[in-house]
Design a protein around this nucleic acid. Structure first.
Length: 269
DNA sequence: CTGGTCACCTGGAAGC
DNA sequence: TGCTTCCAGGTGACCA
């Protein structure tokens, strides 16, 4: 699930429930995630959660003396649950906070839970990250600068976190469709005006997805609802062979960098 | 530096 | 039904 909108919705959901609470313990049932989980009760117990920030697809739980860096990988999800909730098969990590706990479920184990002291933005995983697409300073001019001299396909540039964070495979496909740009176009061939169009479609698409997910925020707490029920109605993603919603031409699928790319050959040039 | 490929894991769907 | 194959929303490490 997790691209920037899902991570941002998760951030808001858990911030609501965790901020101000005191960490009472940690449970690591499976430390072998993307990197070995290094968070321990010894470091965390007694600290209070000051807030939850996001950098790209990383969640940064501010505990004062350090940050808990959480990444959801391909299949991770976080929930706030009552303390006694029995863990399921892929529930690898809990942060205990009195009568509730924050639980990470991650079947594929591509996620991460890392304890970081010191300046979190200097952490090796965060230091080299690119621009946040929803920040004010991301615009057509900035995207134009980023694309200069780059011969990679624009879709691959959008997904390169060293340049722009948070845009994964689904939203890269969707944004390029909205902007009428062919995913294989070399980045440096985009004019300033097309960059402006693309930058604004990126913002609009991500914001719409966050809005769609925001409506399910309350599901972060309690045993009931599943999150991730905010599937947007995709224009091209996973629609190979189906008619383009705009012009009726069959959507095509190609592979770029071992990832599926979906596009309308008529609308995107 | 850039650009391209691989590896890490599990589960679900499709194919035979 | 059961086995095999393919595919999946991420990204750091490694190579030429």
């Amino acid at each position: 699930m997790p691209e920037l909108p899902e991570v941002e919705v998760t951030r808001r959901g858990i911030a609501l429930h965790l901020t101000g609470r005191i960490i009472s313990g940690v449970a690591v049932r499976e430390p072998r995630l993307r990197w070995r989980v290094n968070a321990s009760a010894r470091d965390l117990k007694g600290l209070s959660v000051r807030g939850v920030a996001r950098r790209g697809k990383y969640l940064l739980i501010d505990c004062g003396a350090g940050h808990l860096i959480v990444h959801l990988g391909m299949s991770g999800s976080l929930r706030v649950l009552p303390r006694e909730t029995p863990p399921g098969k892929h529930d690898h990590f809990d942060l205990q906070l009195g009568d509730v706990l924050l639980r990470l479920r991650d079947p594929r184990r591509f996620g991460a839970v890392l304890w970081s002291t010191g300046r979190v933005e200097q952490h090796r995983l965060l230091a080299g990250l690119g621009i946040e697409p929803l920040e004010r300073n991301f615009d057509g001019g900035r995207l134009h600068t980023l694309t200069r001299g780059s011969r990679v396909a624009i879709k691959q540039l959008l997904m390169d976190a060293k340049r722009i964070v948070g845009v994964g495979n689904i939203y890269a496909n969707e944004c390029l469709f909205q902007a009428g740009i062919h995913p294989r176009l070399q980045a440096h061939r985009l004019s300033l005006s097309r960059c402006a169009r693309l930058a604004s479609e990126i913002k609009a698409t991500l914001r719409a997805a966050i809005r769609a997910g925001g409506s399910s925020l309350r599901d972060y707490s309690g045993a009931g609802g599943e999150l991730g029920c905010f599937q947007m109605r995709y224009s091209v993603y996973d629609r190979e062979g189906l008619q383009c919603r705009r012009c009726g031409t069959p959507i095509r699928r190609v592979v770029q960098g071992q990832r599926s790319t979906f596009f309308c050959p008529a609308c995107q040039r």
